[in-house]
């Protein structure tokens, strides 16, 4: 009673419709596969030559920044311009959706009236909430402490943007072309300050730090927080510095002085 009657009750033996169908499918498959098979057929593999490349980064270093807010001038945005130039973050005239990797934040204390301005970017936390919530593991922390987005894996879910307490990440909302080769970025993925990882790996400083030193107030210092001899380590050991929202327990790698 619940079985279906077989409407396509074909007679046993020769079925011309089925034979034609199978032949057509086989032919179509053959034609579709032919170019790829031909390409495969005209190549012949041979062993690759040895890979001569850098070593992988280890956790021997932890990169961090120290920003002296006392030296950060109110109208100066050398760091922001340098970051835009370095990473190709040209705007599209849509401030709500344009990417910002670093921005100047103006603070005013409502009880005292004191004003300050400081740059805020991805804080490269030691316990990054963005890494915890990323479903594919695209948001990750490198061994040397730099928090990055692996755009090969990013599916654009924006959960990391929800999770970041510092609003460090941006979502790329339009087609891009002529990206900077050292800073690939594409539509539909999430991005943020990379601490200029391409420069750091080449032994240089992030663009914002360099620009601040060149044309800004010299407020930004970059270095290895794990090397006790580095200037940044000596400074944080001897001066009072703090992290933004230290109460969240994320241990950011960016510290602020005179804030």
């Amino acid at each position: 009673m619940s079985g279906n009657t077989n409407k396509l009750d074909a007679p046993t033996g020769f079925d011309p419709v089925r034979r034609k169908f199978l032949s057509a499918v086989t032919a179509a498959t053959g034609v579709a596969l032919a170019p790829g098979v031909m390409l495969y057929g005209i190549t012949r593999p041979s062993p690759a030559t040895a890979n001569v490349a850098n070593e992988a980064v280890a956790n021997a270093a932890r990169w961090g920044m120290l920003i002296d807010v006392g030296r950060c001038a109110d109208g100066c945005d050398a760091c922001v311009s340098a970051c835009v130039e370095e990473n190709g973050l040209e705007g599209h005239g849509r401030p709500a959706t344009d990417a910002q990797w670093i921005r100047k934040v103006e603070i005013r204390n409502p009880s005292t009236g004191r004003r300050q301005s400081l740059p805020v970017m991805c804080q490269h936390c030691a316990e990054p909430p963005c890494v915890d919530v990323c479903p594919t593991g695209a948001s990750f922390k490198r061994a040397d402490g730099i928090v990055l987005v692996d755009k090969h894996r990013c599916i654009g879910c924006r959960y990391c943007m929800m999770a970041c307490p510092y609003k460090a990440r941006s979502f790329i909302a339009e087609d891009l072309e002529d990206q900077k080769p050292h800073a690939p970025r594409g539509k539909g993925t999430v991005e943020g300050c990379t601490l200029c990882v391409h420069r750091v790996d080449a032994g240089r400083q992030p663009a914002c730090v360099e620009a601040c030193g060149d044309s800004g107030g010299g407020a930004m210092l970059f270095g290895d927080l794990q090397d006790p001899q580095s200037e940044i380590s000596r400074r944080v050991a001897s001066h009072a510095t703090r992290q933004i929202r230290a109460d969240l327990g994320l241990d950011p790698g960016v510290r602020y002085q005179n804030l």
């Binding site: 030559t49 890979n51 490349a53 850098n54 980064v57 061994a143 692996d150």
Partner: peptide
């Protein structure tokens, strides 16, 4: 190679 570059920081001329 892209995983080695992005995740491990291995950068080299070869690939």
């Amino acid at each position: 190679q892209r995983d080695e570059t992005v995740r491990l920081g291995v950068r080299g001329n070869q690939y």
